[in-house]
Design a protein around this nucleic acid. Structure first.
Length: 345
DNA sequence: TGTCCACGTCT
DNA sequence: AAGACGTGGAC
């Protein structure tokens, strides 16, 4: 009887996608970079970012000697910006503490910033062909269905890891890890799985209703927060931006100055006291920008003003429109800027 | 429209 | 250990 891994690996040989980080002789730098980018992010989204990164920083050494700001600019739009901060920090630690090589040992990998249990196992298996159990959302779905595991999270996670360990082959470990995720992405999809095309058909224990697994977790309603953004345009078209604190949300990214982000629309006193310029004549734009983050909805009203003032502003910089792309702007701030600039008086 | 993908890591 | 932390695309 053919084993689980033989069936899976046989399928993977013929059906794997050609992806920029895949190779018969994997580059650990590529494996790590792609795995960090692929956390919570789809392959299609990641590809252009990955290509830009390896073009700009062909080696780990190149990345380690770059500036965090440059990395954040290249990462802008990908989201979860702590990944970029940790990526940069990790590259430097690898150079300073590990002679520029990824450790092969799980404990040591887990010490590195941005590398948790999933990514450590992915690196060990894909880059170094070790039998390590990389459990991501795809693997949870595939094995919850294959083994008919009905328990809710987080108990399910433990069960899946046990099953996966039992299925691990002793060679082609990297292919096995990638094949599990490839199967989840292409065949054992969240919605309308293609069971006819599955190399594990005949052994799967949830043929009748695969879509019902894994058990959905309870979603909480997202709260809404509010702010007023101040779009300050100089006569030559430059816009006033400031840098966010390195810690916390959108850490180290640039932003249009705003009031604090509150549970209610800020009142006139808050709007007045947080304005970056003590001038009269603010234009209150009609409507507002909507954006949804991982954990709240965000409504941003925009107040606009034109100034002739050439002076510097505390902790803020003037940026010409054509230079905006050189700044690390999160998507929400790109929305605010285009809203503010396109809105006619 | 709103929900889901989306366990991934850090705190 | 539960919440923080982005984004865009599929449906």
């Amino acid at each position: 009887m053919t084993s689980f891994s033989d069936n899976l690996l046989g399928w993977y040989d013929h059906h794997q996608r050609s992806l920029p980080w895949r190779s018969d002789d994997p580059n650990p730098y590529y494996v790590w970079l792609s795995e960090i980018m692929l956390q919570q992010t789809t392959v299609k989204t990641v590809i252009p970012y990955f290509l830009k990164f390896i073009e700009t920083w062909p080696t780990l050494q190149d990345l380690a000697t770059s500036s965090l700001d440059d990395v954040l600019v290249a990462w802008q739009g990908l989201g979860y910006y702590s990944r970029a901060r940790n990526l940069h920090k990790c590259s430097q630690q690898l150079i300073s503490k590990h002679a520029g090589q990824f450790p092969k040992d799980e404990k040591q990998l887990l010490q590195l910033p941005g590398i948790g249990p999933y990514t450590a196992a992915a690196i060990r298996s894909i880059a170094y062909d070790q039998p390590a159990a990389a459990v991501d959302g795809n693997v949870i779905r595939v094995l919850a269905r294959y083994c008919a595991l009905t328990e809710p999270r987080p108990q399910l996670d433990k069960k899946v890891r046990e099953r996966l360990v039992a299925f691990l082959p002793d060679k082609k470990c990297g292919d096995f890890t990638q094949a599990m995720m490839e199967l989840g992405a292409l065949v054992c999809r969240p919605k309308s799985p293609d069971c006819e095309a599955c190399p594990l058909q005949g052994h799967c224990r949830s043929v009748n209703d695969p879509e019902s697994l894994p058990t959905a977790s309870i979603k909480k309603k997202l709260p809404t927060r509010y702010a007023v953004a101040y779009l300050v345009q100089r006569e030559d078209g430059a816009i006033l931006l400031r840098k966010r604190d390195e810690k916390g949300m959108l850490g180290g990214m640039m932003e249009v100055p705003t009031t604090p982000w509150l549970d209610q629309k800020p009142g006139p006193n808050v709007v007045k006291s947080h304005a970056p310029l003590e001038v009269v004549g603010w234009e209150v734009l009609e409507g507002y920008v909507k954006h949804t983050f991982s954990h709240f909805h965000f409504h941003i009203h925009v107040n606009r003003i034109q100034v002739s003032d050439q002076s510097d502003h505390h902790q803020a910089v003037w940026v010409q429109r054509e230079n905006l792309h050189q700044k690390a702007l999160p998507t929400v701030m790109k929305k605010v800027i285009s809203f503010g600039l396109e809105k006619v008086k």
